[in-house]
Amino acid sequence: MFELLKSVMSEVLLLDVDGVRPDALREDAGLDSLAVVELSMVLSQHHGIEVTDDELFELDTVAEIVALMEQRKRTAA
């Protein structure tokens, strides 16, 4: 799921993901207030993972986002 997140960040959000580790802070990884909206839309539209931008905006680290994505993927499966 971390790899999926990095691929969306890189290919859709055009963020530089080299060196982004799970413990990186969300904002430091480039996932600012507008990026979390686009991330939420892309995860829903293309990957069947429903997370709101409000939920993403509350999270501090990349690892917390990955954990939420994994939880929602399981719920949807």
């Binding site: 207030s33 507008l34 979390v36 909206v37 686009e38 939420s40 839309m41 931008d53 409000d54 905006f57």
Partner: peptide, 11 residues
């Protein structure tokens, strides 16, 4: 309200 405007504008 920036984030909601962003979402609505794209959709």
């Amino acid at each position: 309200r920036g984030r909601e405007v962003f979402r609505q504008s794209v959709e």
